[in-house]
Design a protein around this nucleic acid. Structure first.
Lengths: 192, 192, 192, 192
DNA sequence: ATCTAACCGAGACGGTACGTCACGTCTTACA
DNA sequence: TGTAAGACGTGACGTACCGTCTCGGTTAGAT
């Protein structure tokens, strides 16, 4: 019986170390903020060698992305509601809440910020399209009552863009009333 | 005539040094990118002492903001056009072009990015509201034919947000056709 | 026939691995020098696991000592000559040549150097007394014509010490003429 | 009056930092030994930035050499004595004491050891010729009664070499009696 | 015509994170 | 059990930049 030529050799990767690094990154982001987070700090907080961190990730952004990618999807999953306005409104409220309050939202903002500085992170963030999947899901649900909805990408940008822009450039998020008006305008312009 | 008690004494600030620093920051951003820009590098490129930089600015973001603030306003000033669709479309096209191509747009993205990492920069960027003034100008022009336009802040976010969101999270900007459709939807939802 | 209770169990030590390590150490010393030699590098050059090296040796000095100990003895064995001056002179010339030129001499110098830094290596080098055996041999041969020769240890130091000192602290070895004069003085002082 | 073109600019070198580094190196050598001494450790012990150490020295050997070079000369200066045997004997005893006991002697051994590993250190040590000056001084004093003394370099090697060789390769130094015999043989061979 | 205070350039200072390297140990699969 | 492979936690390497400091020298208004 032939030996599998592709069999892995040597000591296998430690799942314990991997989890410790991801948790440490999450914790540090909340504790000290993205700017003060360092690869050194993550390794120390995780109780892991520095080389082990560099072996599997190249930047703190990469670690953070892996750490939060599941959380983002989960936090932006909203229930299907019979009324389209309610459905979409629940989503944009969850989005606004996520961006301004949730630790994962904090990480999302940090990652989008870093993407503007580092081309490698930019590619990662573009590829991950963290908000895209959840937006597509809710848009698919309201499409039956929005016959004039534009292409999925533009429609998603119309829903999500104003909320994200507000988060990026203003100290406070939109009020619930403003979000309701935003959703109302979207559905109006998509209805005929 | 009495001496002004608040008169400045000593050698006055060197305008030459100030300009050299702002230009050096601009140049470095294009040459090496925001992440690789350093206070040390700016001082050296400007042919200026390090202390002189620290005396007047505390971060590279502050320098960059001062360096580009006039350019942004200028590049986003579009001519008033008789047709509202044309007027708004010209603006969003200028905005898209600015964000993806212009050196000042590169700086804008870097500043918004840094604002997600550093609270002090965040306050600066919020206070500057770099895109807000130009958006308000064009919205004031189309308001007569858009009676249902929401509050200025929400309306501005609806115009600008999707374009900025696209720039932040996707590798390519919206096409001219997508921007036209975006503007058409906006004016539709604001018309009744 | 019964199995010997003291027989070794498990896989026996690989002679192939042992030789590969010793040769790798020798080669690396010449190629990259003692300082740049590492246990990791030796293992890789030998095509041997890192653990295998650590199982049988604790330092690179120990490996090097085992690698060269036979060569030293061989290179410093000089033929007995009828004239005492010739006999001793042939020896000190071989010694000088060994120290400045031979790969084994390079290793000897590296080991003596390391002995000044690491007490464990110091003990090894003292115990090995690499030059001592050959010096004793030649001194035994000239003793009949050197009745005032002091104790073997001092006599050996008088022969070998100046040559080694020269190698340690000066860029070039003694010339043949200087070595001849050295030997002449030694035999003069030992003759009466 | 013209400004001096060669005038030093910027903050001048801190003499305080220089001394602190030299003392720290000295202390660390005694406390932890040469092998365990690190540039990092020296900087920390000196209360000095790491860059400051690297700015002025490239290796720990260079620091150590600067730290001990004055001490060596001082410790090996012996008084002129009327009898040549006494004069030379006092010197070789001081040398033996220096090599086996003195902190500066410890450093000397470490430096000679490192010189066998690192060509840059080798050049430094050769250039410094730490033992040479003191040997020349004492040889000049005994020369009147040693007409057959060979060239200064060989004579110095004959005096110093055996003592250094002993120190390098044996656990204990020569006894006072052995040193006396050594000196007696030297003067005998140089006398006619 | 000095005086004096704040500016200017240069560059060394004490720190600290960077990314790499080798250490010596461990955990696999295979022989 | 020995072996080759390779990940593990540790810690020094030499570099870069941080923000501060200390020089000599400049430039104005106030005396």
């Amino acid at each position: 019986m032939a030996t599998d030529a592709t069999a892995k050799m040597g000591r296998p990767r430690s799942e314990r170390a991997r989890r410790a690094v991801l948790h440490a990154a999450d914790d540090l982001l909340v504790d000290v903020g993205y700017a003060a987070m360092t690869m050194k700090g993550i390794a120390e907080r995780a109780g892991v060698g520095r080389q082990t961190v560099y072996r599997w990730w190249t930047t703190k952004a990469e670690i953070l992305l892996e750490a939060i990618i599941d959380d983002v999807e989960e936090e932006l999953t909203t229930p299907a509601l019979p009324d389209a306005v309610d459905d979409l409104l629940t989503y944009v409220r969850a989005l606004s809440e996520f961006l301004m309050t949730s630790p994962a939202g904090l990480a999302y903002r940090a990652l989008v910020g870093e993407a503007q500085h580092d081309p490698a992170v930019r590619d990662l963030v573009h590829a991950a399209d963290l908000l895209g999947a959840s937006a597509r899901t809710v848009l698919d649900r309201v499409r039956p009552v929005a016959p004039a909805m534009p292409s999925p990408k533009l429609a998603a940008a119309q829903v999500v863009g104003p909320v994200v822009y507000r988060m990026l450039t203003a100290p406070a998020e939109f009020s619930h009333e403003e979000l309701r008006e935003h959703v109302r305008h979207l559905l109006t312009s998509w209805s005929s």
